[in-house]
Design a binder for these strands. Structure first.
Length: 496
RNA sequence: GCCCCUGUAGCCAAGCCUGGUCACGGCAGCGGACUUUUAAUCCGAAGAUCGUGGGUUCGAAUCCCACCAGGGGCACCA
């Protein structure tokens, strides 16, 4: 991939610094698709974009211009097109600006006649096959700037993602939620059970962790009196990659004072149903060839109920550790000696039942042992008021009535510390400042974390997370350049 | 980390199982023809360390080994 990739000569000379447009491909189609074949409009417009196709036939040329809204044909007769030979010699992929009358060809294709045109930028690399595009996933992800031109679905997915974020913000703001930004650098990784990335701050000579969740900072803000807050947070987890996992991903977290898990479940189902209608036109969406009906209300069922439904075995924390071990063995679920009753119950659910759920469904009541930030269930001992939503067979969110009691929270952290000492490197660390915040009083609060990437996957009907992340995490590309040197940290000239 | 699959020009892609004349083609790019095309069409010339390194063989894109990169699955998580 060296010299051979370059074609043509660069002609940065004469490239303008700006170009005035007054229309777009989509706007032209909206306004003029109804005109008669072979007619002219008398309307002159300026548009700009990339040349994607070209059909030259001697003294008449057609081209397809693509901009961010779509495509429109250019009509260029030799008689009226300035520098006609130069125009027909443009490469596919070149950026041009065109000014001319809107008209429709005899064959009924809406077009802009090229009365004036300006080269805006040339491509020095050939564009992919105009029909097949790029099929190699590696190339698509590494060269997304090309992929987005030649893979229409890719562009649509990212437009949907943008609209989803915008709609989500608006929907929450209409309900008096305040969008906030909390630190990405955490001195103590917290708010979830996951391995963090770590980095080092030179001036402070301190290890910092990239956040695995914004949860503890958002709840600090509830202590601070922001009664409804949310953050659309990029979070980072130092774990494996898969079709459902990227090391950096986006999570929506929202916290509502005076609310409990029931309120939050309603919030989640209403938000997601709303997004489905706005983005797909219906509460029924098709995912991976199968329908899922997101109309509210969604089913709610407790975790032990669902296990019983699936396996026919009644399970409960009250059965005790030995009985649960036996059940796990019966069902062929491997468990660790270090696992407590709660962890075993969760393992049984995850191995036997969760894979068969399609949803949408709220799975409620998770064991305390595996839910260190959730509040004790108001009536079921050993369980918490925690729920997850399963939609289209995928875990989409995790929410609960928040644990507000500082003494109880310290006990939960201590339990986590014990697990960490026992070798669980995803266990939490005691966060003294968070405990101090709780000491000041956290009101009853309900909270939720929603995996935005997975929500986009659901509504865009794509099955790999890399198709909803513009630049997914990949190994560094082999450039062919000899390794060593060149990327050492510059010896930091101070310029401030 | 384990298992399976893939890697042929800028892009798409045949050949690989059943080793054997200058590695089949298409798009883009280059030269030429063409005044209503729609992946325009037609003619011409050109473009390839067959992922990398070893091995087997008279002979390797093809068979074997290792490595690199990517995809899918398992495991962990959202």
């Amino acid at each position: 991939m060296t010299g051979g990739a370059f074609v043509g000569g660069g002609d940065a000379d004469g490239q303008p610094y700006r170009y005035e447009t007054d229309s777009t491909a989509a706007a032209l189609h909206d306004a003029f698709d109804g005109i008669d074949d072979g007619s002219e409009t008398g309307t002159v417009v300026s548009i700009a974009g990339r040349l994607m196709l070209r059909r030259v036939q001697g003294k008449l040329a057609f081209a397809t211009l693509a901009d961010s809204t779509g495509r429109v044909q250019l009509f260029a007769p030799q008689k009226t097109t300035p520098q006609f030979d130069d125009f027909t010699g443009r490469s596919i992929g070149d950026w041009i600006g065109v000014r001319g009358e809107v008209m429709k060809t005899r064959r009924g294709e809406l077009s802009v006649r090229v009365d004036e045109w300006t080269s805006l930028a040339r491509t020095r690399r050939p564009f992919p096959d105009k029909w097949k595009g790029i099929t190699d996933p590696d190339t698509r992800y590494r060269q997304r700037y090309v992929d987005l031109w030649v893979t229409p679905d890719a562009r649509d997915t990212f437009v949907l993602r943008s609209r989803l974020l915008s709609l989500t913000r608006r929907w929450l703001e209409e309900r008096d939620f305040l969008e906030v930004e909390t630190p990405v650098f955490h001195p103590i990784p917290g708010g979830a059970l996951a391995r963090p990335f770590s980095t080092h701050h030179n001036a402070l000579d301190q290890e910092l962790f990239l956040r695995i969740a914004p949860e503890l900072y958002l709840k600090r803000l509830t202590v601070a009196g922001f009664e409804r807050v949310f953050e659309i947070a990029r979070v980072f987890r130092n774990e494996g990659l898969s079709t459902r996992h990227n090391p950096e991903f986006t999570m929506l977290e929202a916290y509502q004072a005076y609310a409990d898990w029931d309120d939050i479940m309603v919030l989640v189902e209403e938000l997601i149903a709303h997004l489905a209608v706005e983005l797909t036109g219906s509460t029924t969406v098709t995912y991976d060839g199968r329908d899922v009906d997101l109309a509210t209300p969604w089913r709610r069922a407790t975790l032990p109920e669902l296990v019983a439904e699936r396996t026919g075995v009644q399970v409960s924390l009250e059965d005790g550790l030995d009985r649960l071990r036996d059940v796990a063995a019966e069902l062929g679920v491997p468990v660790d000696d270090a696992h407590g009753a709660g962890k075993i119950l969760l393992e049984i659910y995850e191995k036997t039942t969760e894979p068969h759920l399609w949803g949408p469904i709220f799975v409620t009541e998770y064991p305390k042992e595996v839910s260190p930030l959730a509040r004790d269930h108001r009536s079921t001992p050993g369980m918490t008021e925690r729920f997850e939503a399963i939609i289209a067979g995928r875990e989409l969110c995790n929410g609960f009535t928040e644990l507000t009691d500082a003494v109880e929270q310290r006990a939960r952290f201590d339990e986590q510390a014990t697990q960490k000492a026992a070798g669980d490197d995803e266990a939490m660390v005691v966060d003294e400042d968070y405990l101090r915040a709780l000491d000041y009083g956290l009101p009853p609060t309900g909270g939720i974390g929603i995996g935005i990437d997975r929500l986009v996957m659901l509504l865009a009907d794509v099955t790999t997370i890399r198709d909803v992340i513009l630049f997914p995490t990949l190994r560094p590309e082999q450039t062919g350049a000899p390794s060593g040197g060149s990327v050492d940290n510059d010896q930091g000239e101070d310029v401030d």
